[in-house]
Design a protein around this nucleic acid. Structure first.
Lengths: 336, 336
DNA sequence: TACGCGTGGGTTAACGATTATTCAAACGGA
DNA sequence: TCCGTTTGAATAATCGTTAACCCACGCGTA
């Protein structure tokens, strides 16, 4: 049975409140008593029961992290950044991975609330228009921050990559490297991909070119999809000499298709990805990619949440877009 | 202000206890009252305050996960497996990543205990002989399970890879593929690496060969270390025609060195790694690797912990070694 | 002498649930 | 009719801490 303040108080013939005050460094306590309590607490190896404290202070010093898929490097890194950011303030993170299942997401969401988390950081996978799930959090006034994927119709804090900038940056890079005909493996039909595509379009237009639908190919978000997409791209005439990919796995699949076709990369076709996965550097052709600042997403989201938790009055929602950064490697290193 | 049982009770003119009983499906309650309570609870959108419940039941339905480094794919996957395993039993996971810092590990460990977690899963980085940190958990009788790295001198539950088997499996595979002179990049001087090296030695001996110290090279656990190690290996005469690597990053570095030297892989030298990282398949030469059953480690550790939490009486420590599995890819696919 | 105030600490009542105990009414059998 | 059971629910105590008040003492001062 763990030691309680009661035990210390009894041994020392003082009241529990006195012990509590000493341990919190609060209220007026003589130095003598303070020392006695401190010494005895250490001797008994006392440890606060945070559950009891939380009950009365209404603060658990816990934040909930609701993620679609935990083992994904992107989310894992975010989780790490968040944990490291809140730790100095005494906060811990309880994770809930819902494996891309919206039902499970909703139920885990409720569980976290029942556990009285002080705040929530959520990368939601709710189908659009289902913002209802988050109604409850608004009633309760538990602060929360959305990351990665915004939810339309929900006036909430959001921290994520600037996907439009990502598409633009990738495209501009290919232009700068002398590409004259740039295609795009635009990925799945989701908001993020649409934004990146939009960035691609704008960059072309800014260069005075007209985006051609022929060179924009739909797909998914994995290697296979990139492989298939590039095979299709290679049937276009004239061939593109640069391809912007939705993300790194797609780019990796695309590279495979290019090499299989006997073309040289980057001379014949340059390829740029997005996400800057950590193994991009060890590929057969190291991959130029757009770093979306994963860690910064985590840090900013955590800081934003902490600010909201600290402030008594509700603040008005804030959106933070992280500016992406290009990391150049072999896959686009061609003579200009 | 969230709804409490008190609110429901008042509205319905019953006692709080009655509400509590209905919600827990316990005790004798007439069907009429039961329905009234249930309906009203739903109407008010009642949610249990788990903090309050935990205080009296002495159960938080929370387990602590203490990891050296959160974003590492190995640990991320373990975390995921654990979370998924305990969720059906109503448990959540609070993570604490200590960034390979033993001091931080100790302090996070205390924090988790103060938070009254029902159990702990720990991948410790305590320098050997510092088992003292875990003394406290023994006093408290909070069950815990060590993973990945055992701690000598601590009679505790452990779940991890069978590192000796990993070394043996990798080596046997190269022998089966016709290698006649097999080297080893044995990695850092830690227990895990030593076990894998031991497996390598035994496999050679079992084949009737004598391990030669000349072909065993020390190093670290990253790509650079693998690269440097292989460069050194390539100065040995006669050249080895197969190399067992401590882990996949080392193997990746090693492959780079082999290719740079103008040798063909796997024809001149076959390379096998360990860990089966998910990107191993997209490398310039897809990497044969030993899968250490990361997910199973997580699942088993979680199940073991759950069992200990459930049992009243302390059980005696149990060690589970996960049997590894070979995944063959191009890096060893040579004609026998 | 009486008053006021700072000091050091104690008392009491939450916090929101659960467990253990008690109690009233209804029911049934002799 | 009377007593013993069952049924259904209320009451009291508790979990370990904190918040809000209260109080006694000593000292300086008017």
């Amino acid at each position: 049975m763990p030691v309680t303040m009661m035990d210390i108080a009894k041994d020392l013939n003082v009241s529990v409140v006195t012990v509590s005050k000493v341990l919190r460094n609060q209220g007026r306590i003589s130095d003598a008593t303070r020392q006695r309590v401190l010494r005895h607490a250490k001797k008994l190896n006392y440890q606060m029961n945070w559950v009891a404290r939380s009950l009365v202070t209404r603060r658990t010093y816990t934040i909930g992290l609701l993620l679609p898929e935990f083992a994904h490097p992107f989310f894992a890194e975010i989780a790490r950044a968040i944990a490291n950011t809140v730790r100095p303030q005494g906060y811990h993170v309880v994770i809930a991975s819902f494996e891309e299942d919206p039902e499970l997401e909703a139920s885990e969401f409720d569980s976290l609330l029942a556990r009285q988390v002080d705040g929530l950081i959520i990368a939601s996978a709710q189908p659009s228009g289902r913002a209802g799930v988050f109604k409850r959090v608004n009633e309760r006034e538990t602060p929360y921050v959305l990351i990665d994927r915004p939810i339309r119709g929900l006036n909430a804090c959001f921290v994520g990559a600037d996907n439009r900038a990502i598409g633009r940056l990738a495209t501009e890079h290919l232009i700068a490297r002398g590409c004259k005909r740039i295609g795009c493996l635009r990925g799945p039909r989701v908001g993020i991909a649409a934004d990146r595509l939009e960035g691609y379009r704008r960059a072309l237009e800014a260069a005075g070119w007209q985006p051609e639908e022929n060179y924009i190919i739909n797909g998914g978000h994995g290697e296979d999809s990139g492989y298939d997409g590039m095979r299709e791209m290679l049937t276009r005439r004239p061939l593109p000499d640069g391809v912007v990919c939705y993300n790194d796995p797609v780019a990796i699949g695309a590279i495979k298709a290019v090499l299989e076709a006997g073309l040289h990369l980057p001379r014949d076709i340059a390829v740029v990805g997005a996400g800057n996965v950590h193994y991009g550097a060890v590929l057969s052709v190291p991959l130029t990619s757009i770093d979306q600042g994963t860690q910064r997403i985590g840090v900013q989201a955590a800081e934003l949440l902490m600010a909201r938790i600290a402030s008594k009055r509700p603040m008005r929602p804030k959106t933070i877009l992280i500016t992406p950064k290009l990391v150049e490697r072999e896959s686009t290193r061609r003579r200009t």
